[in-house]
Design a protein around this nucleic acid. Structure first.
Length: 544
DNA sequence: TGGTAGTCAATAAA
DNA sequence: TTTATTGACTACCA
């Protein structure tokens, strides 16, 4: 068009970077980029993509023309406004040099723009990710896994060479691919790269070559007595498909804080806290941090990660977290006292304390929801208030008794099913805000947090059995076989006179309806605990 | 400030 | 040795 073209505004930093790298004239880079471009073209053969690309190309051309015209007029305007100093012999030379430099720069711009135009015919991965309306991530990852397995290629080498990602990220992408519509453009890029790789007829050969190269390099290093890192991501030649793959800008390893290893008790506490409030306030985070002897930042990270991973596993459950966020009191919010009590039950369960079940907790005579919740934990009964407070959760168990505890909770015959399956079903019912792998125990809180969840049509279709006050999803066969052994126990709170009086004044309430948010006054509760402890007045319900 | 999304990398498990 | 898990982190957004 005879005018210097401005770089496309739609270009990503990566594509700009690739243009700059092209200018360096690196032959290996050029050849690999050509290969990638070929694959992109191949990928873009579908009518849908071609249509998008053509439209996009037209748009970009228009924008570039406008930008070029604007830049030229702006330059002329500046020249006319700038006062020109009288020329000197020296300045004339400088002017010539500047003119030559400007001309070279302009030529470079043209070249870059032409290259950019070429890239619009075969768009960047970013653009492809942005323009592709739908892609079956499950199918892609299945194909990738098959290809890697068949050719004995590891996730590590595939991730580094093809996707520009670490092994852990590749593992997550391949084993738990998110649906396309749930991915951001950035998140879609790896799948585009996978698709490109699949459409490359020499994909496996190239990776095998990289593998061989790495192996030889490793041997050489070992032979020379150098430390074998075996993690030679610095080998640029390995970075076949990933133009933006160098991570020079990443912070040094020392900058990353060493990860904390949570004890089972700490995990249990965090899970419990999450069921009570998936979006804890700053106060709650600080409370948990001091309670668990962890940094606030660590608590925050855990909640972030847990929300994200729960969402990844089961969007429905994550939606319920959102609901409880919008209605903080519907799920009971976070009450430190309640948390401590419930946690003591859970820990008792973890430690497999063989204490007879108490079906109505004496410390919560006026609170059927909490009493109901506590029933879920066999170790609840018999614990004195002093046993429930001051828990040292920072101490990790040495006998791995927690695992035994978790196993011990699994008495409902659900071993016959896959653990994962059972848990996914739990979460689908919306009764669990727990992570898919974290707990085999039925999370108790959602039973009363939001009774509507149980009443949903999807849930109503599923048979359920009450064990220790905890709803346990079972198959119809399980249900039949256990029917005779299981007694459904309805919550029957023990009311003292005050409570009865309160109930009279407030009117009758159905459990778990308006009273879905029990807020317990600490002082009165402790007093009540003492009284009840002294009186040892335990009202027992039918045992089973 | 605090949320999400994506990722790294240490560690555990297979 | 490879793969899965998960705490920590960055980037970006409202």
């Amino acid at each position: 068009m005879g005018k210097p073209l401005q770089p496309s505004p739609a270009l990503t930093p990566n594509s700009i970077k690739s243009s700059l790298e092209d200018r360096d004239g690196s032959s290996s880079r050029d050849s690999s980029r050509e290969r990638e471009r070929d694959m992109r073209s191949h990928f873009m053969t579908s009518p849908q993509h071609q249509m998008f690309a053509a439209q996009h190309h037209l748009d970009q051309l228009k924008k570039q023309q406008q930008a070029a015209a604007h830049a030229q007029s702006h330059q002329q305007q500046q020249q006319s406004q700038t006062p020109q100093p009288p020329p000197s012999p020296h300045s004339v030379v400088l002017q010539h040099q500047a003119a030559a430099a400007a001309q070279a720069h302009a030529q470079q711009q043209v070249n870059a723009a032409l290259r950019n135009l070429g890239q619009h015919v075969a768009p960047s991965v970013y653009e492809m990710a942005a323009l592709t309306q739908d892609l079956d991530t499950q199918v892609i990852t299945t194909k990738i896994k098959e290809a890697l397995l068949a050719n004995n290629i590891g996730q590590k080498i595939f991730g580094e060479a093809v996707l520009g990602l670490s092994q852990g990220s590749v593992s997550e992408l391949l084993s738990k691919p998110k649906p396309w519509h749930m991915l951001s453009i950035k998140g879609r890029e790896p799948f585009i790269r996978m698709q490109l790789w699949l459409s490359d007829s020499h994909n496996v050969e190239r990776l095998q070559a990289i593998k061989t190269e790495r192996r030889e390099l490793s041997k050489r290093r070992r032979g020379s007595g150098a430390q074998d890192n075996s993690d030679d991501t610095s080998s640029n030649s390995s970075d076949f498909y990933h133009s933006g793959g160098n991570r020079d800008s990443s912070p040094p390893l020392s900058a990353k804080k060493q990860r904390v290893l949570f004890s089972e008790e700490q995990k249990e506490a965090l899970r419990l806290a999450f069921t009570l409030d998936p979006y804890p306030s700053v106060n709650t985070i600080e409370f948990l941090a001091s309670e668990l002897n962890l940094a606030s930042r660590t608590i925050t990270n855990w909640f972030h990660n847990h929300r994200m991973r729960l969402k990844q596993h089961n969007p429905n459950a994550a939606n319920q977290a959102e609901v409880s966020r919008e209605q903080p009191n519907s799920g009971g919010g976070f009450d430190p006292i309640q948390f401590r009590l419930l946690l003591s039950q859970r820990l008792a369960g973890l430690n497999n304390l063989n204490i007879p079940p108490l079906l109505t907790h004496p410390y919560f005579p006026g609170n059927p929801e909490i009493a109901n919740l506590i029933r879920g934990f066999p170790g609840a009964a018999g614990l004195r208030p002093e046993q429930m407070f001051g828990l040292d959760l920072s101490v990790k168990t040495t006998d791995e008794g927690s695992d035994c505890g978790e196993e011990g909770m699994e008495q409902d015959g659900s071993d016959q099913e896959g653990e994962e399956e059972v848990e996914m079903r739990e979460m689908q019912r919306g009764e669990a805000m727990e992570s898919a792998r974290s707990s085999r125990r039925k999370p108790a809180a959602p039973q009363w947090v939001n009774p509507d969840w149980q009443a949903s049509p999807a849930n109503a279709a599923e048979p359920e059995v009450i064990i220790n006050g905890v709803c346990v999803m079972q198959t119809p066969d399980d249900y039949r076989s256990n029917d005779n052994e299981t007694v459904r126990v309805e919550p029957t709170p023990v009311l003292d006179e005050d409570d009865i009086e309160d109930d009279r004044t407030e009117g009758a309430r159905s459990p778990g309806s308006e009273r879905a948010s029990p807020r317990i006054k600490e002082e009165s509760m402790v007093e009540r605990m003492k009284e009840d402890d002294e009186e040892q007045e335990i009202k027992r319900e039918p045992e089973y």
